[in-house]
Design a protein around this nucleic acid. Structure first.
Lengths: 168, 168
DNA sequence: TTAAACTTTCAATAAGTTTTGAAAGTTTAA
DNA sequence: TTAAACTTTCAAAACTTATTGAAAGTTTAA
């Protein structure tokens, strides 16, 4: 396979995976493009490479910066802004985990805690079923939360090393 | 808070979380409704509880069965079909992990394996950057894959027990 | 200042996804 | 058989999300 074709496939695969996980396809594609690009790119170059409009490119770059996955760079003597992606896979994974935890898991944990506290008649099967499901899910969500917390603090080697020690 | 209100909140929160993670909001809501329902429900009752059409209810129930999260039940002497959700949180988590692995991770792993094999000039910085990003991501994805495999086989207590032994 | 170079915004539009509901299909019991 | 009870399908409509591109905003250098 040609390098050019391979790059295209990578960008497509990353975009598809993103959209399956609730991340804007174009944002994932811009990220993919920057991941395989040795140099920082301009908005112009990104528009060209992905055939997208200026507004779209700008908005998704902003979002990627918001996710902590991409940084602006300035080159001496140049007006243009350049964009560069952190290429460290472990940093990327942690950054994504951190943002999604903050945006999605934390709010849901707050609701589950609140719902766990709802009191009712222990004889009422409707109440009992509700309460059991909610508290069970709350426990699982808290476990996930703790694991993510640990992951956010961890060094890559330590983290996977520990996981694999368990898993033989 | 009233039980009725709490149920409503749970259904909404579950639906919102689902849609943020690329799962049809209504499907997640139907699942939530069944999770807190002590008895199996008919299509009719689900339509009523969530104010959705017959077609929509039917389609999402089909999908939930496809995800292995819901089962059809037949009651003696009744024509109607009843639907019932597995309430075991660990089973739910494993089932979702299993399906998403199959539908999303496995295909992406195949692409990454293929792209990892692309040969090129080691002096070409374009090639080197592409290759490093792809092989790094491939390694991470394989770690995730192995961890999921283990999780799919594991007993709940064993799994979380082991995880927390590490994470103190 | 000014104006060129560049970035951001946002209303309009396009694209994608979900939902509806009526028609077609299936099953059951008499 | 038949017809009532129920389930499934699917084209059209509604809704949601993403994209465009031109106008407005900002920065820089002369």
């Amino acid at each position: 396979m040609e390098l050019a074709e391979a790059k295209q496939k990578f960008i497509e695969a990353w975009g598809k995976l993103g959209s399956e996980w609730g991340i804007n396809r174009t944002m994932a594609q811009v990220h993919a493009l920057l991941l395989i690009s040795p140099e920082a790119l301009t908005t112009e170059e990104i528009m060209e490479a992905l055939s997208i409009s200026r507004g779209n490119a700008n908005m998704n770059l902003r979002d990627l910066i918001g996710w902590g996955l991409v940084e602006k760079q300035h080159k001496a003597g140049e007006r243009k802004e350049y964009f560069f992606a952190d290429k460290d896979t472990w940093n990327i994974a942690r950054q994504v985990a951190k943002e999604r935890k903050k945006r999605e898991l934390d709010p849901v944990l707050r609701v589950l805690d609140e719902l766990s506290k709802v009191k009712g008649d222990e004889k009422d099967i409707e109440y009992k079923t509700f309460n059991k499901s909610v508290t069970d899910i709350n426990k699982l969500a808290k476990n996930v939360d703790k694991t993510l917390e640990t992951m956010l603090k961890a060094e890559e080697n330590w983290f996977w090393g520990s996981i694999f020690k368990i898993f033989k």
